[in-house]
């Protein structure tokens, strides 16, 4: 297989996945670009979540102080009706957006994962639910950064 054909196939497959994700409502914009955007406000805008209000119906469960920023356990719990999307942002990371999750009907609005944190910063959970976008933020102190 020559290289250009290979590249075309690869690009095609990737574009297909992206188109599908956008259609499924996982991402309102091109996915590759939203992960390369720097800064909370810019990422929120790209997610279509500009102007999201803080909500105490969203809970971020995490330790206050974490020794190793390479593995920070974070759980997001949403009590907002119709929660269908969760995004996790870290305001001081080189890559602001850590992950975006689409939760189809029937999937509980509660999810735990592990992220890297370069330094002490705020983790922000952005939730899309029936009432639009809302967010919660929580500071996590990092003893040794883990984005190297």
């Amino acid at each position: 297989m020559d290289r250009s054909r290979r590249l075309a196939l690869k690009t095609g497959a990737r574009a297909g996945v992206l188109a599908w994700l956008v259609a499924a409502g996982v991402l309102p914009v091109s996915a590759a670009s939203v992960f390369s955007i720097h800064g909370v406000d810019a990422v929120m805008e790209a997610l279509g979540a500009a102007g999201a209000r803080e909500s105490d119906a969203i809970e971020i469960v995490a330790a206050e102080i974490v020794e190793n920023g390479a593995m920070v356990s974070v759980e997001v719990i949403s009590r907002l009706a119709g929660t269908r999307q969760m995004a996790l942002l870290v305001d001081q990371n080189p890559t602001t957006l850590a992950a975006v999750f689409a939760l189809p009907d029937g999937t509980l609005p509660r999810l735990q994962t592990r992220i890297k944190m370069a330094q002490t910063s705020h983790v922000i959970a952005v939730i899309e639910a029936d009432g639009g976008f809302s967010l919660a933020r929580r500071e996590i102190k990092i003893v040794q950064g883990g984005c190297g």
């Binding site: 992960f35 390479a70 509980l108 992220i115 984005c147």
Partner: peptide
């Protein structure tokens, strides 16, 4: 489909997820 995730490089090594579905 019960979960669809998009990751950037800020997700930890050996990505770990816990979630539930009805």
């Amino acid at each position: 489909v019960v979960l669809q995730a998009r990751f950037g490089p800020s997700v930890s090594r050996d990505p770990y997820l816990v979630f539930s579905f009805a």
